[in-house]
């Protein structure tokens, strides 16, 4: 980390735990829950948000002194919509089946509260390099939660990780299935994502007592 000063490094590490966009700032919940039934979808969504936030934060920061205050939400929406259209077209071109699974949720990155939230809270008041780091940091914090939820849901729900059968073959009863283990199909259903995130919040706040609400 030679090229980042201590304060700049904090912009990236803070959102990973103590100021996590999903569990602390309560932003970006919608997509964190809906698409995490498979680890691959979580990773692709995280990369998309990383791209949009990194570039978006820089763009907004560069034009922050020219945007009239009355139309700034519309300008922000336009920038984000343009970036998301790019992401959507790239996904349709290179990963068509995955884009069909993610369907509407790529478009919903536009209304992902993290992006607009960080524009308002940071990019509108800071220089491009710092805004870029802040964007990357928050996107990584979002990615951490998505990957954890996706990991547990896919592992416990279908016994696979990224499509590879890691617990053995359920049909031929090898590996863990030989002793009678069964996949918990419930984990693949959407309500379990809510409960997994609730448990993550529980663990996080038990370890850091300052985060407990009154």
């Amino acid at each position: 980390m030679g090229l980042l000063s201590k304060k700049d490094a904090k912009l990236i590490t803070d959102p990973l735990a103590d100021n996590n966009p999903i569990t602390i700032q309560v932003l970006g919940i919608c997509s964190a829950l809906a698409i995490t039934a498979q680890l691959k979808a979580s990773i692709v969504m995280s990369l998309s948000v990383l791209f949009v936030m990194g570039v978006g934060n820089v763009v907004i920061s560069l034009i922050r002194n020219i945007i009239p205050s009355k139309i700034r939400i519309i300008v922000q929406l336009t920038v984000v919509a343009a970036l998301v259209i790019i992401v959507d077209q790239v996904l349709k071109a290179y990963a068509y089946s995955l884009s069909k699974e993610l369907s509407v949720f790529i478009g919903l990155i536009i209304t992902n509260c993290i992006i607009m939230g960080r524009f308002e809270a940071f990019a509108l008041g800071n220089g491009p390099w710092k805004s870029f780091l802040d964007g990357i940091g928050n996107a990584l914090g979002y990615a951490v939660i998505l990957v954890i939820v996706g990991f547990f849901r896919e592992l416990l729900g279908s016994g696979t990780l990224l499509g590879f059968k890691v617990l053995g073959d359920p049909i031929e009863k090898t590996g863990l299935y030989a002793i009678g283990y069964e996949n918990n199909g419930f984990m693949l259903l959407s309500p379990m994502a809510l409960i997994v995130v609730g448990i993550i919040i529980w663990v996080q706040r038990s370890r850091n007592k300052d985060l407990i609400e009154d």
Binding site: T23, V26, P191, M192, A193, L194, I195, V197, G198, I201, W202, V203, Q204, R205, S206, I212, E213, D214
Partner: peptide
């Protein structure tokens, strides 16, 4: 205490 507020809301919504 760690579940107060946000955490318990998530779990209730899940249920």
């Amino acid at each position: 205490a760690p579940l107060r507020g946000l955490g318990i809301t998530f779990i209730i919504t899940g249920l």
